[in-house]
Amino acid sequence: MTTPESLDGVLTFIEAAGALKDTLRSGCTAGGRVESVAEHSWRLGLLALVLGRDHPELDLMRVQSLCLVHDLGEALHGDIPAIDQADDPDRTARERRDFRTLVAPLPEATRADLTALHDEYEEVASPEARFVKALDKLETLIHHTEGANGPDFDYAFNLDYGRTATDRVPRVAALRAMVDEKTRTRLRHRGDR
């Protein structure tokens, strides 16, 4: 239970998490503006809400919670673009440290709950985490495909990105096939294929 004494820590946490509104990702929106991590997390939650109805075996409150916490660690040191993640072997450990720093002001039970959710997502340790991981990759692909990105944007990267995660969930894999076709169209219009 949040006590009056712990409200200061809650406010500190919420203000720090607000940095995700200004933490930018690499792709542009359809209008040409660079997307924030908060916007990505919002649309991830929306995808989960819409597709979650097809998965009665999942705890949808847990799914939404995973959506909200999955990128919180990026509030401190930013987002690493998907295309650059292989070149940053410390990324996961750094984001976990940043996540722990971010939740430190929270009451102990709340901090433990959020940390458990974060770890569940990172370890893909439940059906809900597998679902959210698949949707996280899909949302990134959708964003890249619809975005007003620069002429050097690597759309070909999208055709393999996150496939292991998206292929684990049949409905997500079906949507992925549609997004892949849009990616191929973007490539053809650029003359890459």
Rank of each mutant, 00 (worst) to 15 (best):
Gln64Leu: 15
Asp79Gly: 02
Leu159Gly: 10
Leu44Lys: 07
Leu51Val: 05
Arg176Pro: 02
Ser65Glu: 11
Glu122His: 09
Ser6Thr: 14
Asp71Asn: 08
Arg130Gly: 07
Glu39His: 08
Val34Asp: 01
Arg186Met: 08
Gly27Tyr: 11
Thr29Glu: 07
Pro56Asn: 05
Leu138Cys: 04
Phe131Thr: 02
Phe99Ile: 10
Thr140Arg: 05
Gly18Val: 02
Glu108Cys: 04
Asp154Ser: 08
Lys137Ala: 13
Arg168Tyr: 00
Leu135Ser: 04
His144Met: 14
Pro89His: 11
Ile83Glu: 12
Arg25Ile: 11
Pro56Ser: 14
Leu117Arg: 13
Lys133Gln: 09
Ile142Gly: 01
Thr2Ala: 10
Pro4Met: 09
Ala19Asn: 07
Asp160Met: 06
Glu128Phe: 05
Phe131Met: 06
Lys137Arg: 15
Arg94Glu: 13
Arg163Ile: 04
Asp98Cys: 09
Pro81His: 06
Glu146Met: 07
Ala165Glu: 13
Ala134Leu: 06
Leu106Asn: 05
Ala16Gly: 05
Ala173Asp: 09
Thr92Val: 13
Phe99Lys: 12
Ala86Gln: 11
Ser36Met: 04
Gly162Pro: 04
Ala116Leu: 09
Asp113Thr: 13
Ile80Pro: 00
Val179Ser: 05
Ile142Cys: 08
Ile80Gln: 09
Ala173Pro: 01
Asp71Pro: 02
Tyr121Lys: 10
Asp90Val: 09
Ala148Asn: 10
Ala93Cys: 04
Ala17Thr: 02
Val63Lys: 07
Leu7Arg: 14
Glu15Cys: 03
Gln64Met: 13
Leu175Lys: 12
Ile80Tyr: 02
Arg111Thr: 08
Arg111Gly: 12
Thr3Ala: 07
Gly147Thr: 04
Ala174Ser: 11
Val169Ala: 08
Ile142Tyr: 01
Arg53Gln: 13
Gly147Ala: 08
Gly27Cys: 12
Val63Thr: 07
Ala75Glu: 03
Arg186Pro: 02
Val124Ile: 12
Gly27Thr: 11
Arg130Pro: 00
Leu24Tyr: 05
Asn158Asp: 15
Glu5Asp: 11
His118Glu: 14
Asp152Ile: 02
Asp71Gln: 06
Arg184Met: 10
Asp113Cys: 11
Leu102Arg: 06
Ser6Met: 03
Leu76Asp: 01
Ala156Pro: 00
Ile14Thr: 13
Asp113Leu: 14
Glu139Gly: 01
Asp180Lys: 06
Leu68Arg: 14
Val34Asn: 02
Asp160Arg: 15
Val103Gly: 03
Leu187Met: 15
